[in-house]
Design a protein around this nucleic acid. Sequence first.
DNA 1: GATAATTGGTCAACATGGCTGACATAAAAC
DNA 2: GTTTTATGTCAGCCATGTTGACCAATTATC
Lengths: 164, 164
Amino acid sequence: MADIKPSGKALFLREEELRRGIELMYFAYRDFTGEADSILAEQDMGRAHHRAIYFVGRHPGMRVSDLLAILNITKQSLSRVLSTLVKDGYIVQKTGAGDRRQRLLYLTERGNALEARLTAVQGQRFAAAYRNAGAKAVEGFQHVLQGLLDVETRSQVDRQDKSE
Amino acid sequence: MADIKPSGKALFLREEELRRGIELMYFAYRDFTGEADSILAEQDMGRAHHRAIYFVGRHPGMRVSDLLAILNITKQSLSRVLSTLVKDGYIVQKTGAGDRRQRLLYLTERGNALEARLTAVQGQRFAAAYRNAGAKAVEGFQHVLQGLLDVETRSQVDRQDKSE
DNA sequence: GATAATTGGTCAACATGGCTGACATAAAAC
DNA sequence: GTTTTATGTCAGCCATGTTGACCAATTATC
């Protein structure tokens, strides 16, 4: 209770608990993405394609620069996947009505179908984990994940949450 | 309260909540690894090196095949990072006493120092998030993460937890 | 003791998805 | 009319995953 002997059991448990978090985070993320990766591989796509499809599905009509800001990668990296997604008919770009420099991004029917399929498998994994852990645990889960974010990411996520 | 009209608000909230989890997972993992990535880049290393160092630090004397099983990658992939880690003096391999085919893995002092530094930054991020969220939340966090694991990973993690 | 299996390593080639740097075009803003 | 913005593109580099083939040392098995 009292924190005498800081090098004793309390500290040990603390470090153990932190390592447990670190490891769980690694394994959970790996497994969480694994199923989607398999589906993507069938269509000769990778995780990068998934991210583009996911966020365009989430924010139809978003600008390329918005997507870049969310993904936090270079436009050259994004370009590679975006152009194949457009070529293969998963995403369409429409010239912005107000600002005609913009190429607003939308999923096609095909894109929507793939997005739904991918989100379904990941969602099912989450749903199972949520169901098993209970509502209180889910709250805690989200709370801790929020706390792991960089401040910039946090404000981004907050902004998005509000606008929906 | 009662779940009449399954296509109504309850379902919508559910999908929203699942997407929220998916997104938080992505952003949190990215930010969680970001700091360590920077440190690693200074030493001309990448995440793969980190993983090897981390788990060898966690399980001194482990076999190469154990590390392969944990990381779930091919030995060719591991070999690339492992050989540079040995060459650069972060890891040493000692021939197994019982079975001399084995090359048991240990961190050197240098390896230990880097491991400590990397685990410190990630641990601090976790500690802050944990502190902010509270013990109950941490429990829920770990519970949900466990639920996201593949069954094979889960038994791996369980086995490890017991043996410590 | 010969043969088979295990542990670990290596070479080569390929894919994905980050990165930098340089440059181009169209449209908007000043 | 010049500058800035939004987007795209070419070229090349790096890290880290993959497959397939093959090898050496050691241990286990018949």
